[in-house]
């Protein structure tokens, strides 16, 4: 499979503090790749660097082999990388429909209507709430809006940062079903998760991060059996 996204030796610093110290990973066309790791190892920094929110201090991010580091966040969205970010970052004072419209970018008319229909098909709940302020939605609905808004941009690669954070177990299952459904529609996904078990079940490929570096990588099914992973991230119990 050809690589959609290639990251080589990526370095990001906040002031003098290095956060990413040489991260390399690949996301193939139409694949699901997950990055696991505990809090504060740099997963969100990685996602923000890909989206052009944080400046890259070294290394390379390539989309279809063309370097994209140094581009502005809006240029990266135009190239087909959309993100459902950590903390959702929805527009809480604006309506649900306005949030989705913003996700669509410059597309209007026919193309926009089609996308909206597609998103409403995935999240029927959102349609009932179209005219409501996004901030008045429940946590699960906000997460759906966040993912729906990112999908309105017709991404080739969807970045999902902790989509299950703070959601009830039933909703977590829904989110992971959704991840599989999005891939079925042809969109590649890079998924950052603390819920390692669910992430490994849905992903093809997995990377484990520790303090700014990739320490382990391999097919998700193999990593799920790896004793080190089981000890560190899957624990004795499922959460």
């Amino acid at each position: 499979m050809s690589q959609l996204l290639e990251i080589r030796d990526l370095r990001v610093s906040m002031g003098a503090q290095p956060i990413l110290e040489g991260v390399s990973l690949d996301v193939p066309e139409g694949g699901i790749v997950t990055v696991l790791g505990s809090n504060g190892v740099g997963k969100t920094t990685l996602m923000r660097a890909i989206s052009g929110i944080y400046k890259v201090t070294g290394g390379d991010i390539r989309l279809d082999g063309k370097p994209i580091n140094g581009l502005r966040s809006d240029e990266i969205v135009r190239l087909g990388i959309c993100q459902a970010p950590e903390g959702r970052q929805i527009f809480s004072n604006m309506t649900v429909l306005e949030n989705l419209k913003l996700g669509a970018g410059p597309r209007t008319g026919r193309a926009y209507e089609e996308d909206l229909e597609r998103i409403v098909g995935l999240f029927p709940r959102l349609q009932e709430r179209f005219t409501q302020k996004a901030g008045s939605l429940s946590g699960g609905e906000q997460q759906m809006l966040c993912v729906g808004r990112a999908l309105m941009g017709r991404p080739r690669l969807l970045l999902m940062d902790e989509p299950s954070l703070g959601l009830a177990p039933k909703l977590v299952r829904q989110i992971f079903d959704l991840v599989a459904a999005i891939r079925e529609a042809g969109t590649a996904i890079l998924l950052v998760e603390q819920n390692a078990k669910a992430a490994l079940r849905v992903a093809d490929q997995a990377y484990v991060m520790e303090s700014g570096r990739i320490v382990l990588q391999g097919p998700a099914a193999e990593l799920a059996e790896d004793p080190r992973i089981r000890a560190a991230y899957l624990g004795g119990h499922v959460h």
Partner: peptide
């Protein structure tokens, strides 16, 4: 208008505006 929508989005959540591809 589109630019108005962008202005309100940046006012509401500047970081979120970047994620949806608004040139802030």
């Amino acid at each position: 208008t589109r630019i108005g929508l962008s202005i309100r989005a940046v006012a509401n959540n500047p970081l979120g505006a970047k994620y949806v591809g608004i040139n802030t």
